[in-house]
Design a protein around this nucleic acid. Sequence first.
DNA 1: CCTGGTACCTACTCGCGAGTAAGACTACTC
DNA 2: GAGTAGTCTTACTCGCGAGTAGGTACCAGG
Lengths: 211, 211
Amino acid sequence: MRTEGRAKRLPRAVRERQIMDAAVDVFSRLGFHSASMDEISEVAGISKPMLYAYLGSKEELFATCIRREATRMMEAIATGVEPDQEPDVQLWSGLRAFFGFVGENRASWQVLHRQASTQGGPFAVELTDMRGRAVSLVAALLTQSTKAPATKLEAESLAAALVGAGESLADWWLDHPEEPAGVVAARLMNLVWMGFGDLVDGNVWHPPSRR
Amino acid sequence: MRTEGRAKRLPRAVRERQIMDAAVDVFSRLGFHSASMDEISEVAGISKPMLYAYLGSKEELFATCIRREATRMMEAIATGVEPDQEPDVQLWSGLRAFFGFVGENRASWQVLHRQASTQGGPFAVELTDMRGRAVSLVAALLTQSTKAPATKLEAESLAAALVGAGESLADWWLDHPEEPAGVVAARLMNLVWMGFGDLVDGNVWHPPSRR
DNA sequence: CCTGGTACCTACTCGCGAGTAAGACTACTC
DNA sequence: GAGTAGTCTTACTCGCGAGTAGGTACCAGG
């Protein structure tokens, strides 16, 4: 709603946060290429040279956005999971934390999933890295809990599929926001833990009774 | 390998196919924004005005590419599935057809999945449409086969998750091409039909014995 | 050999957006 | 109140790429 005039003087750290917030917003709406530095600076309420002085080039800025949002998300998930519980409970906690985060951070999710995965730029590294961490996490969970001997490749590919299912369901959820996070998470949990085979027969998974 | 000179005169229909092939190739490698009409015309072996005369603007061209590749893929899947078999067999056939197609049409898949899903342009319609058809297909399969009463929303979201898992696994596969299509398809089949719960216990799904 | 129509080209225009030069305004310090 | 360090701006340059104007080669049929 600011129209014109000089921006109020603010310490660098504060400005940088504002700019990052604006950048995530714009990138999430328009994608990397279509987002212009002019628009980001406008949304942030400052002029373009400030942008360059503080955050560097457009690619650097984007990479920084991804790193920040990825970290926030991974932390949200990690704090939701307790590592010495049963595998299914761990998975359940992770899923709930994931959908909880997405629900409260639509823009972050858009940047992370839709935008970053596309371009083969230098920032793809950041994204691939985060996704890799997520996949490894799930793969480890699976490997550790399975009794049947499973190859590394097998666990990894299953984890990739699961992560993809989560991403896709999160996207679907953006178009059906009336559903609560817990319900969506529970559905995915049932799919990947019970499988269609059981669901078709009416067998569902439910969390262990409280306490 | 053509360096210069006038291109050989060819009937319009043939040229259009050549151009489309070139466009799919370039779009798949660079994405919509980074791909330039200059490069596409160069790869196609003709000059830019021809491109515009035949296929219209860049956006129209891209939309046309998506439509063509989407149709090819949906047909490949449809011909692989026989609609009055058991649900699990139908799903299995569909998955095999899908991974078979992706394996033999990397470029098409890149265009369809990575590139098209990103941009919010007018072509997003084409993509959303195809994805929607795939989701409906799976949702119908699920609804029809389940005994427990399931809401439309529930079936649709599960289908979305499954489709997403397939997409994600296909992407993972691009980075691990040494695995045969059937193995990858079987893994996903096991995940979504049996679920982790069963897999952890060593129960696997396998196709009904041949004949 | 002319007349048209279709394939095809070179050589532009023109806007958009990344990045910058050069300076102006504010605030703190001694 | 003069120096100086950090914040912030206006007003550019400049390349890239979408889209086009205005042709040239080639092949009919008359």
